[in-house]
Every structure is written in C-alpha cells, then in structure tokens.
Design a binder for these strands. Structure first.
Lengths: 358, 358
DNA sequence: TAGCCGGGTGTGTGCGCACACACTTGCGAT
DNA sequence: ATCGCAAGTGTGTGCGCACACACCCGGCTA
C-alpha cells in the first residue's frame, strides 16, 4: 500500500523525482519566479517524461481564478440560425462554470454594420480573458483583433475564417465546399440546360456576404465542372415583404421558362420556399442552408429538396471550450483551422438533426 | 472583509445557520448516519432556503471515489467501424479521468456469438460501477441487464436500442429511419422499375442482424411508399473471398438485367463497390453504411453514390459521459432515447466528416 | 562589519468537501 | 455504581493545487 500506488502523477511526485520542493515545481509550471537553470532543466525533463497533467479539479478549487469569456455574436430570435449557435454556447457555459469560467454575450445586429461598430467600442471598455468572435463583418473584425493581440487576449473565430489574424482557432465550415455540396444536391436532379434562381436578401448592411460569396463560388465551380449549361438568375428579395418578393419572382419565372432549380446562400431559403409552395411550382427544386425552424418546415413539406448545415451548436460549443482549455490548461487546440462537417438534411433525416447538440 | 462576502454557500455556512457542525450537515446531505428529527428538519429547511448546490469540483477532489466503467464492444482493426466508436471512448476517457472515472474495455468478436457469451461470463466476475453495452447480440444482452439491475449497476446502450430494459440511456440511430434514408438516396436516381441488389455477409454468428433487419424494414417501407415496382435480390457474400463474391454477383447481374441499384445494410459496402469498380458497372448505383476507410475511398472514387453514417464517435463519447454524470453528479441524461443524427455523406462532403469527433 | 539586495528555495495554509474517528449523552442491564 | 450500547454529534485530516510568506546565501555598498 505504498505511495507508488498512485496512478496519477502529482506535483509532489514531480518534486520528489526532481529532488526539489513543490514550490519550485509550481514555479516552473506557471513560469513565475526565478528557478536555477539546472533545476528548470531537470524539472522540465521530469514533467515531460511522466507527461504530467495537472488535476484541473484541484487547480480550479485552489486558485479560485475567475475567467471571463466574451462571445460576440448576432442578436437572434427563437428559431433563427444564431439561436442554434447560442445553444452550443449555453452548453459550454454550463461545463466551463466548473472551472470558474464565466461567459458574457455581446450582441450586434447582423443586418446593421454600425451596430457592430458600436459594439466594438463597448468591447474596448470591457475586460475579458478571451473572446469568441463571429466574423460576419470581416473587415472590422480584423483590425479589432490587432487590439486584442496587444491586450494579450486570445480569440477564436466562428462562422467563417479570416486570414492574417492570430486566432487561437477557427470553428466553422469551408464555405466554398459547402457551396459545392449545395450544387451537387440541386444539380443531381436537374437537366444540364436548366436555369437556376439565386435568391438574395438585400438589406442596409451587407452582412454575411463573405460567407455567401464563398459559397456561391463553390456552387458555380461545381456546376461548371459538371458541364452545367444553364444560367443563374438573381432574385433580389426582401426579408418581410411577401408581396414584393412574389412580384419579383413571378416576373423572373415568367421571363425564364427554363428555370428548374433555386438556391439561396444564406439561411433564408424559406422565403423562396414560401413562394414556390404558394404558386405550386413543384417543378422547381430548391436547396438552401441551415436548419432553422422555417426551413425545416419547408423541407418536411417537400418544398425544399435539401438543406446544407454547418453545426452551429458545435461551433459555439467548441469555440468556448477551446478558449477554456487554453486559459485553464494552457493547451492549444490540436488544429487551428477546424473545418467542421458539412451536413446534408433531407426530409428523411432532418428530425434527428438536433439530437446531438455538441 | 467578513465571511459574508462569500457568494457561494458552503457546508460550513449551512452548519452555522442551522447551529450544528459540518458533519451533521454532511450526514443529512448524504443521508448517512443518524440525525435527530429536529436537526434533520432544520438543516433541510436551511438547505432548501439557500438552495444549496454542492461544489462538485471540491466534492470529487475530496471523495477520491474511483469509478470504473466497463465498455463492452466488438474487437476491431484500424479503419473499421468500431475503431471510430473507440475514438469517442478514448476522448471521453480523457475527460472523465478528471472526475476519477476510469474506463475498461471488454471486447468480443462481432461475428461470433459464443465470444460474447464468454465475455458475459467474464463480466460476471468483474466489478464495475457502470457499463456501456453494444447491443449487437440483443437476445443475450437483455437477460444480462437483469443481472446488472440486481447488482445496481447502471448501463447505457449503444448501436441499437433494446426495449424492456432499464437502460440509463441509449445513444444510436433509429435503424428503421436510417434504412429509409438509404432508400431515398438510392431511389432518387433510379427508375421505379429497376431491380436492386442487397449485399449480405454470411458468417458463423448472425451478428448485427438486429440493426440490419430494422434498416432493411425502413428501406423497404420507403420504397413501397414511393411506388417502387422493382425487385430486391439478395447476394450472399463473404468477407474475404473476392473470387467467390465475383461469381455470385456475376451470376446475379447476368440473370437480372434490370438491376440498377445496390445496397448493403452493414458497413461492408466496399465489397460490392470493389466488384462494381472491377466490372466497370457505373450503371449500378450503390449506397451503404458507415464511413470506414474502405467505404470512404470508394465514395471518393465515385463508385459509391452515398454513405449513411451514425456518428459512432459521438455514441461512444456520449455513452461514457452519460454514465459519468450519473455516477458523479447523480444527474440523469435529459432524454433516455437519444436517436442521433443520421448523416449523409457524398463525395463532396466526406472529407470534413471526421473533423468534429465529439 | 553591518546592512542590503536579489536570485533561488522551501514551508505552510486553505480552497469545499468527504469521511474516519472520537466523542457525548441517556438509558437499561449487571 | 459500573458498564455496555445506541443514537446523535463534532473534530480533524487530506484530496492536488496555488500562492503568500519566510528563508538562505552570496556579493555588494556604506
């Protein structure tokens, strides 16, 4: 019944092995105070040799250090895309609380770039130990990360990745490939000569365009590769103006009789779906993005052929947890660029999609 | 700087409020030892009043209670289905270690029912605090759970669910619906009059049949609903006998010229794929299950049209974690039956599938 | 020589809890 | 009166770690 029975290696064990006291080991681990070259080397050696993993339970109990994470994301209503993302945040929050990590959410309006600007000003006055940043307004996020770099605050990106920043990690999908997937799903059931409607939402700010643009590139690239000969027609739609949208689409579909497919590159394909259902245009195949409630309904009813999704909950969860692990354990994510799975939802499998939120 | 500054209510606080010692409070909380009616009432009152929440961090640190979980699963080689499941186990293991939970794996041969029988005998002699059970041999698992019930050992099911047991939870997919998804993916590109080959592996034991049967039911049900008029032809194939399989399939495809689709209900669709590739039968669409290496390759090469997958890593991870939370925190899973998402993999999205193991 | 300084080191305490152990009190049996 | 016993209660220790603090020693200045 000797002490060797211990399966886990503790700081005292390290200390004994290196022939020093726990305090010295502690200094090496936290890299504080002065330690002689000699001891530093030996302790590091032992640490590495036994692959020391601190007991986080004990650590957070002893330290009592409180971390605060800022999550910067679009405001949302229930059933919208960012609500799913938020579910992941909430889940991570519950888990992170155990390690004295708290989460504060900061919201902006994804359709109003000035709201993001204002939020950044607010954030300059706040203190936090890490940030999860939704990169919708890419051109404003980039400069802001410079400030975070200076403040020594780590951050992760979600939604779409940004080059040239020091993000601890990115969690999201390859928008380009997600575009190709949508194309595949649509084109599978189309003649090479058919035309396709691309639904677009016009608003004040030009939100999400970064991601949407990449998706469209992927979409076009796939079609070209497959020998698609038809045309893409843009329909400029409005968020809450059914009458207007109907007019636009009636006009478009009348003019171009070859239209047999439709797609949107953001989560608003329910708008197009609503129109097609109302006009009973079952001859037009529709593919869209994101499993939000209204899209799911249209998929269920057979108006939408397929939805492409990007695990928003997982993005939120992993974003928070990555910062958590970095702050609490000093452990970097295995990979900086985490291109998450691109999910395909059909009428037949959508009902289970939300059952594994992580 | 008084003690009142404490935001969290600790046991000492409860004790002070109730005018007793911490030990008495402890006895009430854990409902061990004897406590006078009077004190019991008062302590409970205080507990309720301040809505006491124990600090789990401290608890698991102090208790040092070691839990052992048994994971009962098929033996596997790298690149096989259960290797993915195992990856989830490993991940959970790392996380669970923090709460003094260890994992022991017990393997059986999924193609040999007697190996499972033997394993059960072994398990009767082992002690563990919870079990994750892969339910391949359903008819033997059910009775075994009675024994676990008696021993007071909680267990969760993975792979396929079993009715009439006291499982803490189930993590897997609805096999029936997974069958329907495969049917949809296959039938999408088929004439209603085409015939379909169903590949089956014959072995000593009749493994996985529970799940395979349900999938087939779902498959047939979908086809019937959609007005499929063709026939299903069974091909009895062997695991490592290419020549034999070729003979069988040559024969079948020659006899039934209407065959334009193929499917397998377990993870061995690479066998059929190998044949179709060798014979250059690009006219036969093939759909199968599980993203194992050899299937993934065939999907990439375009021989397989689609794969249906069931997040084996998530099943393993969540199975272990559910037991963990139950044992350490006494918290039941939110839902007992966790039908996980049914994933659809095409050539275009498969490369990202393994990027979010949880 | 006393005093100081700073690099380097070790001891001790407490985080909130679980639990072993010692203890008190009242009461009936000897 | 002494003991045993059971019900009820309290004290103390340690989980693994962080960190405040005391310390030691050599070289330096006044």
């Amino acid at each position: 019944m000797s002490d060797n029975e211990h399966t886990t290696v503790r700081i005292v064990d390290i200390a004994r092995m290196a022939g020093v006291s726990v305090a010295t080991v502690d200094r090496v681990i936290h890299n504080r105070g002065k330690v002689s070259e000699e001891n530093l080397a030996r302790i590091n050696e032992v640490l590495h040799e036994v692959n020391y993993r601190p007991n986080l339970i004990a650590r957070s109990l002893a330290s009592g250090r409180q971390y605060t994470l800022a999550v910067v994301m679009p405001r949302f209503a229930q059933g919208e895309y960012w609500a799913d993302f938020d579910a992941g945040i909430v889940r991570a929050e519950a888990e992170a609380r155990r390690y004295n990590v708290a989460v504060r959410k900061f919201f902006f309006d994804q359709y109003d770039r000035s709201s993001f600007e204002k939020l950044l000003a607010t954030l300059r006055g706040e203190t936090f130990d890490g940030a999860v940043l939704a990169t919708l307004f890419a051109e404003m996020v980039s400069p802001f990360t410079r400030e975070l770099d200076e403040r020594g605050v780590p951050y992760v990106f979600v939604d779409s990745n940004l080059p040239g920043c020091n993000q601890l990690a990115y969690f999201g999908t390859s928008s380009f490939d997600a575009g190709a997937v949508a194309a595949r799903l649509l084109y599978d059931r189309l003649d090479p000569g058919s035309d396709i409607v691309v639904g677009r939402i016009i608003h004040r700010g030009d939100a999400g365009s970064n991601q949407c643009r990449s998706r469209e590139e992927g979409f076009r690239s796939y079609l070209q590769q497959q020998g698609f000969r038809g045309k893409l027609h843009y329909a400029a739609l409005r968020l809450d103006d059914e009458a207007y949208n109907r007019e636009v689409l009636d006009d478009l579909l009348l003019k171009h009789r070859a239209i047999a497919g439709a797609v949107t590159f953001n989560s608003t394909c329910y708008i197009l779906a609503g129109y097609l259902a109302a006009r009973r245009r079952t001859d037009v195949r529709l593919v869209g993005y994101d499993v939000i409630r209204r899209n799911g309904q249209m998929l269920d009813e057979g108006v939408v052929t397929a939805l492409v999704a990007q695990r928003p909950e997982a993005q939120g969860y992993r974003g928070v947890m990555a910062l958590c692990e970095w702050l609490v354990e000093g452990r970097r994510p295995d990979t900086a660029e985490n291109n998450m799975p691109i999910d395909i939802l059909l009428k037949e499998n959508i009902r289970y999609y939300k059952n594994n939120l992580i």
